[in-house]
Amino acid sequence: MSAILEARKVGRVLHEGEVPVTLLRDVSLSIMPGEFVSITGPSGSGKSSLLYILGLLDQCTSGAVYLNGLPTDDLGSASLSRMRLEHLGFVFQFHFLLPEFTILENVRIPMQRLGRLSERDQKDRATHLLEQLGLGDQGEKRPAQLSGGQRQRAAIARALANAPAVILADEPTGNLDTKNGRIVHDIFKGLARNQNTAIVMVTHDQALAATTDRQIHLVDGTLDLES
């Protein structure tokens, strides 16, 4: 079985200030389909930077990221957008649902952008996803009418809209109470087990990280190989 997402000797140096800041140095890792991986580390250790580079939202300054075995470092921004649209889903600490749209519409937006399904099929799929995540009766509401846990589940439904191979989550439980955090965590686990979706989750919650298939620990921008 080949890796769905792979980082080879990835480095990231920021040149914004007078002194270059090294965020990541020679990070190599592979994510297998259906694997639930957590990235932990103290703040400033570069875990979010790594996640964004894996998610093709940011580009590394050395090394390369391979999606589905294909190198991504020389792709233009349009191709990168297309790859995100087709293969990747994001969940952040904040839900980032569009406030003017209903939950159902929010979940449909990535499908509309991809344009592979008919309008009817998009609606059916969005409804199905919301049902799966326990939001079957919330589709017509606006994000502001939902609780924090519900919003985060809606955001997950949106991330799943185009059936991505990998979901990248940046502190997805950071804003949630323990109970809701647990629910989100279980959803991820279920996705990895049942739908073969790879999950890469940045978290600083050691207890949650301990229950994932693999834990990657970052210290000062490099992999802590003890983990």
């Binding site: 349009a78 957008s81 995100r84 649209l85 087709e86 994001f90 980032f96 569009l98 990535p110 952008r113």
Partner: peptide
């Protein structure tokens, strides 16, 4: 925020 999330979803610069 909307712009950022749309871009992360796969909306291009042109969109």
């Amino acid at each position: 925020r909307d712009i950022a999330i749309l871009k992360s979803m796969g909306f291009g610069e042109g969109d």
